[in-house]
């Protein structure tokens, strides 16, 4: 086991996030050690806020957050280098006009020799089956190809943790499978996956149920999904 593997991926202690006067997350405590974690819960329960908090895109109003041992609010730069985030809408994640340039864009802020950047870009394109599309305009791609590109742009940075907020929401079943496979595929990276797809949640090592702004259950995905389904029935 490497040194970093001993640190829990995500730890929270009594964390609250407020928007205006309402607590969107309240008194969240958790310690999530597994490689892949699914986050499930109803619409508006606070899943995205939870994910954004971990990705350093939202601030906690109280409590302490540790992601890979880092404080997202204070060690943001270090967090960015190790954590990548993927969202549902690929259009909002693609920045450059052609596929290869967009992947390379993720490495712009990294201090690497140019040859190394090119090598990593090409390797990532290859790994995601995008080599043939390298020079295509990004806005011409299909939804599935765009999301694959967004994922490729996240993985090219070789992150230790990938946060994905409903990455398959806009995709058909086949593309959803493809994206999920790429995301969860064995590797050294860890994954936090927010999803409404309960079959997909079952594929993770552990699951978290969020309800009305707080974590109500953590455990093996089978049991958590069952608890969630019971919650939905009543």
């Amino acid at each position: 086991m490497s040194a970093s593997a001993r640190v829990d991926t995500i730890q929270m202690d009594d964390v609250s996030v407020r928007f205006a006067d309402t607590d969107v997350l309240r008194n969240v405590c958790c310690s999530l050690p597994a490689r892949t974690t699914a986050v499930i819960g109803e619409n508006g329960s606070g899943k995205s806020t939870f994910a954004r908090l971990i990705g350093g895109l939202a601030r906690a109003d109280s409590g302490t957050v540790r992601v890979l041992g880092l404080d997202p609010a204070r060690e943001t730069a270090a967090l960015r280098r190790r954590v990548a985030v993927v969202f549902s809408n690929p259009d909002a994640q693609i920045v450059m006009p052609t596929v290869a340039e967009d992947v390379a864009f993720s490495l712009r802020s990294e201090k690497l020799p140019r040859a190394e950047k090119t090598r990593r870009t090409q390797a990532a394109l290859e790994r995601f089956g995008l080599t043939a599309l390298a020079d295509r305009p990004t806005h011409d791609l299909s939804g599935g190809q765009k999301q694959l590109l967004a994922l490729c742009g996240a993985f090219v940075r070789e992150p230790d943790l990938v946060i994905a907020d409903e990455p398959t929401a806009f995709l058909d079943a086949r593309n959803a499978r493809l994206i999920a496979d790429r995301l969860l595929k064995n590797g050294s990276h860890r994954v936090l996956l927010v999803t409404h797809d309960l079959d997909l949640a079952q594929r993770c090592d552990q699951a978290v149920l969020i309800s009305q702004g707080t974590i109500t259950a953590v455990g093996a995905p089978g049991g958590i999904v069952k608890a969630y389904q019971e919650l939905l029935v009543c």
């Binding site: 954004r52 990705g55 350093g56 895109l57 960015r80 280098r81 954590v83 990548a84 985030v85 969202f87 809408n89 259009d91 909002a92 994640q93 920045v95 864009f105 993720s106 712009r108 802020s109 990294e110 742009g153 996240a154 940075r157």
Partner: peptide, 16 residues
Amino acid sequence: KHADSLGDALSARGVR
């Protein structure tokens, strides 16, 4: 909304 999400995505990809 699009601009907002784009801002998030840019920060997540290492743009300060």
